[in-house]
């Protein structure tokens, strides 16, 4: 399972980088979405996978019984998803405004600030 996930994560990174390299800004944002998802899945995979054992403590007990999934990694991913959501919402607003002002969806037409 971990091998499969590793390939998935690698594939996502590759796809993300391919999309970021494109000239279109919409594709750039899609690439960024994929990149943040790839990073989240990387945390999920590298923290180890435990199936069908949610990290919930039974009522009255002080510790869960047996091996359970790592709750910290899940908390990290949740936080990262929240942050990614906020940042990407901003990115969408940004490209919309940029499109209105520049009237183009092409990185090659946005070279004014480069030197």
């Amino acid at each position: 399972m971990i091998t499969l996930m590793s390939f998935l994560v690698g594939g996502l990174y590759a796809a993300a980088i391919y999309m970021i390299m494109r000239r279109s800004i919409v594709k750039l944002v899609i690439g960024l979405v994929l990149l943040s998802n790839a990073a989240n899945l990387l945390i999920f995979t590298s923290a180890g996978m435990t199936r069908e054992a949610p990290p919930l403590i039974p009522y009255g007990a002080l510790a869960p019984e047996g091996a359970v999934a790592d709750p910290l990694a899940q908390a990290l991913i949740l936080t990262a998803i929240v942050i990614g959501f906020g940042v990407l919402a901003f990115a969408v607003v940004l490209i919309h405004r940029a499109y209105e002002i520049v009237q183009a969806d092409d990185m090659d037409q946005m070279k004014d600030t480069d030197t």
Partner: peptide
């Protein structure tokens, strides 16, 4: 316009 380009 320059701000948008820089921001991207």
């Amino acid at each position: 316009r320059a701000q948008m380009e820089g921001a991207i």
